[in-house]
């Protein structure tokens, strides 16, 4: 029986524990299970599938380097999300300060379907400032509370709330064609 088949039924916490001991097959299974979720999160943040995949890959590699230090293997998901958000924030800082990340141009790789709600949502999100985008995505895409977002990003709770309020308003205006229902939208 191959490692993939062997680990396909194993719980994530156990896989994280095994990966912490250097088991690459266990880590591969973790990547397989978490890749779609993490890449989608990064796409919402970046509006650029290529960059999003690069940052998701960076986060996974960072996870592999440090998974031995993960105290609670059951919290692999939140820990990975923290690594990914940190990678994105570092990318923004590299490009310039967070404020200069406003209005990024969405980029779609060749062959990507650029139509549809998902792409429109990414485009609309890309019109928000970096901090607004981060807070809105974590609130609506990840379903995180204000306190959780504050803890993850290091922003004060009041700032998180105002970013979400402003971002929500702008996003609703940008996505007004979908105001009837997502299915009926253009």
């Amino acid at each position: 029986m191959g490692a993939r088949a062997r680990y396909s039924q194993v719980q994530e916490a156990l896989l994280a524990g095994l990966a912490g001991t250097g088991d690459r097959a266990a880590f591969e299974e973790l990547v397989r299970r978490r890749q779609s979720w993490l890449r989608k999160l990064m796409r919402r943040l970046c509006a650029d599938p290529v960059l999003a995949d690069d940052l998701a890959q960076q986060a996974f590699l960072q996870a592999w380097r440090n998974i031995g230090h993960l105290r609670r293997p059951g919290s692999f998901g939140p820990w990975l999300k923290r690594l990914a958000v940190t990678a994105w924030l570092q990318h923004l800082r590299k490009k310039d300060a967070l404020e200069d990340a406003d209005e990024i141009e969405p980029h779609h790789a060749a062959g990507e379907n650029i139509d549809g709600l998902s792409a429109d949502l990414d485009r609309a999100l890309s019109r928000l400032s970096g901090p607004e985008r981060l807070c809105v995505v974590l609130a609506y895409h990840e379903g995180m509370t204000h306190n959780e977002i504050s803890e993850l990003t290091g922003l004060p709770v009041g700032t998180v709330k105002s970013h979400i309020r402003r971002g929500t308003g702008r996003l609703k205006a940008l996505l007004s064609p979908y105001s009837q229902s997502p299915e009926e939208a253009p």
Partner: peptide, 25 residues
């Protein structure tokens, strides 16, 4: 917005992503 985010959910296929990560590992 909650329903828009939920409706925009899509599963991304592995394609080469997992193998690229494992090559990095």
């Amino acid at each position: 917005l909650t329903s828009l985010f939920a409706a925009a959910e899509e599963k991304l296929e592995e394609r080469d992503f997992v193998s690229a990560v494992m090559t990095g590992v």
